[in-house]
Nucleic acid binder design. Structure first.
Lengths: 101, 101
DNA sequence: TCTTCAGTTCGATTTTTTTCGAAGTTTGAT
DNA sequence: ATCAAACTTCGAAAAAAATCGAACTGAAGA
């Protein structure tokens, strides 16, 4: 089994979270998950990217503590860790949900 | 006179703000300003960096909308744009002020 | 005026990040 | 057992960001 690194709420750092969200691809994924609950890789509303690149971005989001996987068979469903984020960084999820003007 | 780009609250983007805060040097500067009001370059509690590098980081923070300068003689005093940030990204300033554990 | 101080800008180098294709892994179906 | 699907990992290449020193700028003081 894989060793999935997911920091506890108290171990997340604002710098790592910001670095994760500072890339436009990852911001799109995070916003997509904030709105839609749970999705697998093919459901992220990001333009064409190779699957290895997408996997790389997902890893950074996961290691920052923003998202968590639920592995079901061969599919990996990802979701935003809303409870942990609300506890550690109040307001962040709302920012992701806010309209981009 | 210089052409200082400072976006209005409505023109700030979360991606740019996160990209700015995703670098550890800039995060330190932002946290320093969040706690202490106004400071000039020599007051930022960041380790040794050349002044050109520091200037580069300040530019990114300014262009993202996080900080604003007040130029007085030959000194440039910077401050966090707390009101604009509270309006556009509620909770963000509190995150910067929170203890880093 | 000449010099210094506090920065910014420029140009180059180093480091990091993003990206890809190919190969590997795990699961489920045939 | 074999195969395909849905990923991840690896290694390399390209793109972007961080860093520095040198040169420049604008304000204040001698």
């Amino acid at each position: 089994m894989k060793n999935l690194t997911i920091p506890a709420a108290s171990e997340m750092t604002l710098t790592a979270v910001c670095a994760a969200l500072g890339d436009p691809v990852r911001m799109k994924i995070a916003r997509c998950l904030a709105r839609s609950g749970e999705k697998n890789c093919s459901g992220f509303e990001v333009g064409h990217l190779s699957k290895s690149t997408l996997s790389h971005h997902i890893k950074i989001l996961r290691e920052s503590g923003l998202i968590q996987p639920r592995i079901q068979g061969k599919e990996h469903f990802y979701s935003l860790r809303k409870e942990e984020l609300d506890r550690r960084f109040p307001g962040l999820v709302a920012m992701l949900l806010a309209e981009e003007t």
